[in-house]
């Protein structure tokens, strides 16, 4: 899974979070144009055709952190308004930057003060809108990577204790989740070897003791799954990595 030669000196590389955006609009032409633009640039892009759909998506993907959520102010359904939707559901947006986009003829309404106080940006739905959202999302992605780098740097002694290597922290423009030369790669490769050793030390009994997914394993069998890097093995490495992340309390990492 991870090749040591990929490591760059003693650097822990913090991958930029994959740019991720949710666009809420009932203008099908705009949605398709935006989805096409962001998809080809490697974004994780979701679209919702109404505020109600957006609430469902945000609830369902509570683990997922959008960098930007952009909402049209007007919908054909006159009962739905983008500004009301944003203000009434602020907790659902978590740390996402919130954007309301308006038609050319829009004039400030009674919610303007509240929108500004809540940190909601108001943009005109001009031909430049998609480009502006692109810049905002990338800026937010870099900001989160810097935030994570700060946390990791503070935790460097603990990471060194786990990996056995002196570390420095760099932000790189890759988005690999658990492989490659980043923080995850450095730690998960070490974890894999340590985990296999840990399981083998518990292989003194042939009694099946660990259930996962659809099967029951002995410690020895699970160690073999890790070694063969199949889905079960990779899932366990990922779970162990998550456990380590929790112990570092670096929750801002997407």
């Amino acid at each position: 899974m991870t090749d040591h030669s990929n490591y760059k000196g003693n650097a822990i590389e913090i991958s930029l979070p994959r740019p991720s955006i949710l666009i809420v609009d009932d203008d099908e032409q705009f949605l398709q144009a935006a989805r096409g633009f962001f998809s080809t640039r490697g974004y994780d892009v979701d679209i919702a055709r109404s505020p109600e759909d957006a609430i469902e998506i945000l609830k369902r993907r509570s683990e997922h952190k959008y960098q930007v959520v952009a909402v049209d102010i007007n919908f054909d359904n006159l009962e739905s308004r983008g500004d009301n939707f944003v203000l009434q559901n602020l907790s659902l947006f978590d740390k996402a930057k919130k954007v309301i986009f308006t038609g050319a003829g829009w004039s400030p309404n009674t919610n303007l003060d509240e929108l500004q106080k809540s940190g909601v940006s108001i943009l005109e739905k001009s031909p430049n809108l998609i480009g502006t959202l692109d810049l905002m999302t990338q800026e937010e992605s870099r900001r989160r990577a810097k935030e994570l780098a700060t946390v990791v740097a503070e935790q460097a002694p603990r990471i060194e204790a786990v990996t056995g290597q002196k570390v420095t922290v760099q932000i790189v423009n890759t988005t690999s989740p658990i492989s490659g030369s980043g923080l995850s790669g450095l730690i998960t490769d070490k974890f894999k070897r340590t985990f296999v050793k840990w399981l083998k030390a518990r292989s003194d009994s042939d009694q099946p003791i660990l259930y996962y997914g659809d099967k029951i394993y002995t410690a020895k069998e699970l160690a073999e799954e890790l070694g063969s890097e199949n889905d079960v093995g990779l899932a366990h490495i990922q779970m162990l990595f998550n456990e380590f992340e929790e112990s570092l309390d670096i929750e801002s990492h997407d």
Partner: peptide, 8 residues
């Protein structure tokens, strides 16, 4: 998702 348990 898939879940696991220690059956001890």
């Amino acid at each position: 998702d898939e879940i696991g348990m220690v059956l001890a």
